[in-house]
Nucleic acid binder design. Structure first.
Lengths: 250, 250
DNA sequence: CGCCAAGTTTCAAATAGTGAAACGGGAAGG
DNA sequence: CCTTCCCGTTTCACTATTTGAAACTTGGCG
């Protein structure tokens, strides 16, 4: 401990440091991580909020990005790892969350969230797979324009067939039509036995640009739970769309 | 005063707030501005520095931009208003400081610093004038390649002559040659009667991209002081070049 | 409906923060 | 070159703030 150290200020700054690595945390999580009394943590958070260094929403605390980044720093390249809504989806469902976008003929993971759902799971961000391979890819295709769908079909014949993969273009188009009508895609053990995946589209300027998905083992994602989980994924896809359109206007 | 407020943390955050508007300040300036005891300010600054929210250099304190901006946030568009060296030049000389760059046929002010030399003087940033009109423009031209010099000369005949302005292309070229040899440009009451201006070039990748200048009334910038001031401007131009090349690598 | 956990409020005790005074160093002026 | 002044740093004693336990409130889950 330095001779001139002000330990109260140091504790406050330690909270700021922590929130620079975790997207948002509860009072309890912060007090436990930093080994602070919960009343102490409560007061420090209250002061950080008053001074606009952090925001409180629901019972979570997050950094105030306006304080930490210039207002003029508007960047149209979306930072998928800092969006709040996917982390909320992960905490609300207890399942892994993914966001993918197309890049050429590939589907690219832009965000992956796994327990404890407070920071990006960077090991899988950037991973690539064929577009039509997963629920994420299919939901983006379902909401894409016809040209993009045709292009995807033309790629189909050149991609090796694998287990549980659509290879019939007519069947794929039919499936995409169903996905578009119902507003989401469900992989019911199609990619991996024992694993379910639910995906919904994310829009910008009325164009689909990404999809958000959760996955989990069939033991947790029982058929009886699918309706509730589907609603949560669709709500999250709308929240993400709103968050992007609020923060990334051109 | 809020019921749960932690006043010690608040004071520390007020220092951070202040340093978000002033490029750097002394202990005395901070304690006076925030009406803190200098010993209190001393301890708070010490803790902010230990926690890497601020840096201390010479007897100044500045925000640690690494803490406040993502490391990945590398932007090749130079933010002239946040460079440290021009503010140091202003404080060391007590004179106004300017940085200008060319934009087409114009000279544009990218940074202007006036008393109390702690934040940009935004009223004049963005101002435009013909390239060859000032010491800044001339020093950039002097270090530019021949194509750019020829283009400037071709513009000369289309610009109305004004007081104290070179209009003879041969004379201008001769003058540019002198500037290049001595490494700086001096306006000795050429733009305005009673005002002197010293400018030196700023480089990136061995190309001149800007010039830094000071100006002041002849009462303060006496002939006998010009050598010392010239050295300070040249040193600053090198410091700015180094700062840019350190922070804005492509 | 009851229980549990997290967040919030209150109060008393303890500790850290505070500020004055003194010291040291550097710069400026005579 | 010496003296003075100012800013930053160090020290010490006092005070005000911080702290944490206990109690209360609220919401969610079984």
């Amino acid at each position: 401990m330095s001779q001139y150290e002000v330990s109260t200020l140091k504790k406050g700054l330690q909270i700021l440091d922590l929130l620079q690595t975790k997207r948002f945390l509860t009072l309890k999580e912060i007090s436990e991580t930093l080994q602070l009394n919960k009343t102490t943590a409560f007061r420090l958070l209250h002061t950080l909020e008053d001074m606009e260094y952090i925001n409180k929403f629901e019972n979570y605390f997050e950094l105030n990005t306006k304080k930490f980044h210039s207002v003029a720093d508007h960047d149209t390249s979306i930072d998928w790892t800092t969006l709040r809504s996917p982390y909320l989806l992960a905490r609300n469902t207890g399942e892994n969350v993914y966001i993918g976008t197309f890049d050429g003929s590939d589907l690219v993971m832009r965000q992956v969230i796994k327990p404890p759902f407070d920071e990006p799971f960077t090991e899988e961000i950037g991973d690539r797979s064929p577009q039509h391979y997963t629920a994420i890819g299919k939901v983006i295709l379902a909401f894409s324009d016809e040209d993009q769908q045709k292009e995807a079909l033309s790629l189909l014949s050149s991609t090796p067939a694998t287990d549980h993969t659509f290879v019939d273009p007519e069947l794929l188009l039919y499936h995409l039509d169903v996905i578009k009508k119902q507003g989401f895609a469900l992989d019911d053990e199609e990619r991996f036995i024992g694993l379910r995946c639910l995906a919904a589209p994310v829009f910008m300027d009325n164009k689909v640009i990404a999809a958000v998905a959760i996955d989990g083992p069939v033991e947790r994602m029982k058929r009886s739970m699918l309706r509730g989980l589907t609603n949560k994924v669709i709500t999250a896809s709308k929240d993400i769309t709103a968050e992007i359109n609020a923060n990334y206007q051109i």
